[in-house]
């Protein structure tokens, strides 16, 4: 009879006893204190030790046997459970780990590139338009109270005219577009979309872009963000990403995730910009306008920023940039655009 050395504990007191374990038929023999105990193998549960820890054999009476000779006890009992065995194999084999690591990279890439945006895209439409509008209202209120924006120097007529132009560009939208003008030196020439159909245009942008067609191209781009619900989707994607990363890294501190999450968010943001660009190109074409108008407007804005703040303020092509490079955006679907008109 094979005997294996084991440490017996009753599970109720801290006492430890050296014992010997053997097998006879379908029974386990336990010899301790000069007395032999018998257990049916079917009543026992062998727990594989993690990494280099000893195995533990759970006895039906609540006692346990700690067994350092893992190979011997596994042979004696007749092997580990399927789950334990495969887990153990993965822990031992470098080749398995390498293969799995490759698979994991593929899964990560798929999840990052397709699964997460897909899930966010599926979830975002569940939020009713009314909720999006309340969200926009509170943002607008915050913006106005923060002092960053002031009332526009343009009259109501200009605002109504732009809103009218935008509305005719987007027939059949589920949103009722609301165009607002604000004077803001802090933000500079810019237009931004709030969820639910609100677009804010700064006086500085109106001063810079004098061609109404180019202005319309920018408005169409912002409408692209609203139609595709990019605000909600970004929020969903970044919280999904944070959750996934914290699950994966286990007990690691979330401070470590600042860099990967900010890189990923910028990447997602660039993807959204491209999507909004494509939306704008399509609307412009539908109305017999050139898709080059958007790129022209962007070049004007960029030149203005570079002129006022220096080249460093233009964040083209960086991994952290929230927008794609303007050079890329000046070639709608690969089309070569004419030089900038005055």
């Amino acid at each position: 009879m094979v005997t294996i050395k084991a440490l017996w504990r009753d599970g109720k007191t801290p006492q430890v006893q050296v014992a010997n374990v053997g097998r006879s038929g379908d029974e386990l023999l336990l010899l301790r204190d000069g007395v032999q105990y018998r257990y049916r193998l079917a009543d026992l549960r062998l727990e594989a030790g993690v990494a280099d820890l000893p195995d533990t054999l759970q006895l039906p009476d609540g006692g346990t046997l700690e067994i350092a000779d893992r190979i011997a006890i596994r042979r004696l009992i007749g092997g580990l459970s399927w789950g334990d065995r495969s887990g153990h194999w993965l822990q031992q084999s470098w080749r398995a780990l390498a293969g799995l690591a490759l698979l994991a990279i593929a899964v990560l890439w798929l999840g990052y590139r397709h699964l997460l945006p897909l899930a966010a895209g599926a979830l975002a439409p569940l939020v009713p338009v009314a909720v999006e509008q309340t969200l926009a209202d509170s943002t607008l209120q915050w913006l106005d109270q923060s002092g960053a924006t002031g009332p526009s120097r343009h009259g109501e007529a200009r605002r109504a005219q732009l809103q009218q132009q935008l509305q005719t560009l987007l027939p059949g939208s589920r949103y009722r577009y609301r165009l607002l003008l604000r004077d803001t030196a802090a933000i500079g020439p810019n237009a931004f979309a709030l969820p639910g159909g609100t677009i804010i245009v700064t006086d500085q942008l109106l001063a810079l872009i004098r061609h109404d067609d180019e202005l319309l191209a920018i408005l169409a781009h912002e409408a692209g963000h609203i139609e595709a619900r990019h605000g909600l989707r970004s929020a969903l994607q970044s919280s999904g990403l944070l959750l996934a990363l914290s699950l994966i890294t286990g007990d690691a501190s979330s401070v470590l995730l600042v860099l990967p999450v900010s890189l990923a968010n910028a990447d997602y943001s660039r993807e959204h910009e491209r999507e909004a660009d494509r939306f704008a190109y399509a609307r412009l074409r539908e109305h017999g306008l050139s898709p080059c108008l958007l790129g022209q407007a962007l070049v004007r804005i960029e030149t203005d920023i570079a002129h006022r703040h220096g080249d460093a303020a233009v964040s083209d092509g960086s991994w952290f940039a929230s927008h794609p490079a303007t050079a890329e955006r000046s070639r709608p679907d690969g089309v070569r655009c004419p030089p900038l008109p005055d």
């Binding site: 799995l100 994991a104 899964v107 990560l108 286990g250």
Partner: peptide, 20 residues
């Protein structure tokens, strides 16, 4: 522990978080 951490991480990714 490094090895344990790596295997855990890889399996968590492959099983979409279930293994966590």
């Amino acid at each position: 522990y490094y090895r344990l951490w790596l295997v855990n991480m890889v399996l968590t990714i492959v099983t979409l978080g279930i293994y966590s």
